[in-house]
Computed example of a mutant assay.
Amino acid sequence: MTFGFAPSSAASLSASSMRSERSADSADRPTRMLEPTEWAAAGIPLLRNPREVVSGLHTRHRPRPRTAVVAVLDPEERLRASASFVRRESAVDGWTFRNALLSQLRRVIPHDLRRRTPVRTAVLLYCREGDTRWTQEDGAWMWGLRDACTLHGLRCGAYITMTHDGWQVLGEGRGGRRPSADSVAEAFGGDEEPAPRTGGAATEMLRRAAAR
């Protein structure tokens, strides 16, 4: 025989309320994201010349807010391929971002999964509103970049944000005022949104192969 106490209705309501609050909290918070400390501990390789990389990607893709630019660099930090696309979905989720990045990488450059050690590095530049401080959206992009690199046989490289204040390599503290999210409007005028673009030596190679 066992003895116990039936929970009071007030206690039941309180527990139910706490569960609801936790569920609402979980729904509001992005899933699959990396905190700055986790990113710092991941051993992301430093860019030798981040300003040159950022300026080159900006010139090639002219990113506006909500535009992501993923690029693949060789061991000498030369650009081998790149692609840009505009973030359409409203949900902040690393899984969704990973799939979008992986899709772009597959379009512009063959994978390196047969190599024992990755020799090429993927970096991500994301142009967004707000200031240069880390956001949960940044954490989701970091998770997505790291996972996309693993699935494509690449090293996970720098995550760079570009805002109206300028650009910054998150986790490194390096950045600059130009180029910025305003540079496109200054250079081209108007509100026309740049079309997604691809480029790089590997892209040309794939185009020639497809034309045969």
Rank of each mutant, 00 (worst) to 15 (best):
residue 190 G to K: 07
residue 54 V to P: 05
residue 84 S to T: 03
residue 94 G to D: 03
residue 47 L to E: 06
residue 137 E to S: 14
residue 183 S to M: 03
residue 184 V to C: 06
residue 129 E to R: 09
residue 205 M to L: 15
residue 184 V to M: 04
residue 21 E to M: 11
residue 206 L to I: 13
residue 78 R to M: 07
residue 99 N to T: 08
residue 172 E to Q: 11
residue 112 D to Y: 04
residue 5 F to T: 12
residue 39 W to A: 13
residue 102 L to S: 09
residue 127 C to W: 02
residue 71 A to Y: 06
residue 153 G to H: 11
residue 150 T to W: 04
residue 33 M to I: 08
residue 212 R to G: 11
residue 78 R to K: 10
residue 157 G to P: 12
residue 21 E to S: 04
residue 150 T to L: 09
residue 141 W to K: 00
residue 187 A to P: 01
residue 31 T to D: 10
residue 74 D to K: 09
residue 172 E to V: 06
residue 177 R to C: 03
residue 22 R to H: 12
residue 142 M to K: 03
residue 144 G to K: 11
residue 94 G to C: 04
residue 103 S to D: 09
residue 157 G to R: 06
residue 80 R to V: 12
residue 61 H to Q: 06
residue 107 R to I: 11
residue 107 R to H: 02
residue 191 D to G: 13
residue 124 L to C: 12
residue 108 V to Y: 02
residue 200 G to M: 05
residue 192 E to P: 01
residue 2 T to W: 03
residue 111 H to L: 00
residue 207 R to Y: 07
residue 63 P to Q: 04
residue 17 S to L: 14
residue 72 V to I: 15
residue 24 A to N: 11
residue 41 A to M: 07
residue 187 A to K: 03
residue 172 E to R: 07
residue 170 L to N: 14
residue 127 C to R: 06
residue 90 S to N: 05
residue 30 P to F: 10
residue 72 V to Y: 09
residue 5 F to M: 08
residue 146 R to G: 03
residue 92 V to G: 00
residue 180 S to C: 12
residue 196 P to W: 13
residue 78 R to A: 10
residue 79 L to T: 00
residue 198 T to M: 15
residue 104 Q to M: 13
residue 3 F to P: 01
residue 119 V to Q: 15
residue 60 R to G: 00
residue 14 S to L: 13
residue 164 H to S: 11
residue 50 P to E: 03
residue 195 A to R: 14
residue 196 P to G: 05
residue 143 W to T: 08
residue 202 A to G: 00
residue 207 R to P: 04
residue 200 G to N: 05
residue 43 G to P: 07
residue 186 E to R: 15
residue 32 R to D: 13
residue 43 G to C: 10
residue 116 R to H: 04
residue 60 R to N: 08
residue 138 D to V: 12
residue 83 A to Q: 05
residue 17 S to E: 08
residue 195 A to L: 13
residue 18 M to F: 02
residue 14 S to N: 03
residue 145 L to V: 04
residue 77 E to F: 01
residue 163 T to H: 03
residue 169 V to Y: 06
